[in-house]
């Protein structure tokens, strides 16, 4: 529940900012990093639901087919959860490579969802750029999320713990 209070408004502000001011800049994939953070922090059904909601909001903001990003993020959450049982995303390299890998996985899933919806879209170099930028910034953003998540939110119970 607490994660919803923190990460949902953060995502909305980030997406609005991106759409209005930096539509052409390769910014890190914040939604993916949130999903990775929630999955490795202590995944719960709430975390899966948050991933779905973040994907839905992303679809709404980008004018994409509703369900394409939420499909990818919900599954990516599951994979990140399974990965986090084997790998600790605590070192800089693990955070960077893990985030980039999961972002790439998310994009493959989105393209698969588009394919199922009958929309043909080539795998574009911009996607690789976004994946690289996400991996590059992950070691800075993930610890920031950890600090953000540790702050007290009035009225919200601490949730998402194993």
């Amino acid at each position: 529940m607490k994660d919803f209070f923190i990460f949902l408004p953060l995502t909305v502000v980030y997406l609005a900012f991106k759409a209005a001011v930096f539509p052409s800049l390769p910014l890190p994939d914040i939604t993916l990093l949130i999903v990775l953070f929630v999955a490795q922090k202590g995944a719960s059904v709430g975390g899966a639901l948050l991933s779905f909601v973040l994907g839905y909001v992303d679809d709404v903001f980008s004018g994409a087919i509703i369900g394409s990003t939420s499909f990818a993020l919900a599954l990516t959450f599951g994979v990140a959860y399974l990965l986090s049982r084997k790998v600790h995303f605590s070192t800089v390299a693990a955070m960077a490579i893990g985030s980039a890998g999961l972002d790439l996985f998310k994009w493959v899933l989105i393209l698969a969802a588009l394919g199922l919806s009958g929309v043909k879209f080539p795998f574009m170099p911009q996607i690789l750029l976004t994946v690289t930028v996400t991996g590059f910034f992950a070691p800075v953003i993930l610890p920031f999320f950890r600090r953000l998540s540790a702050t007290k939110v009035p009225g919200a119970q601490r949730g998402g713990e194993r």
Binding site: L25, D29, S62, L129
Partner: peptide
């Protein structure tokens, strides 16, 4: 949404 290097498909 998602122009040039901004990634994304839509």
């Amino acid at each position: 949404s998602n122009f040039g290097a901004g990634g994304g498909w839509a």
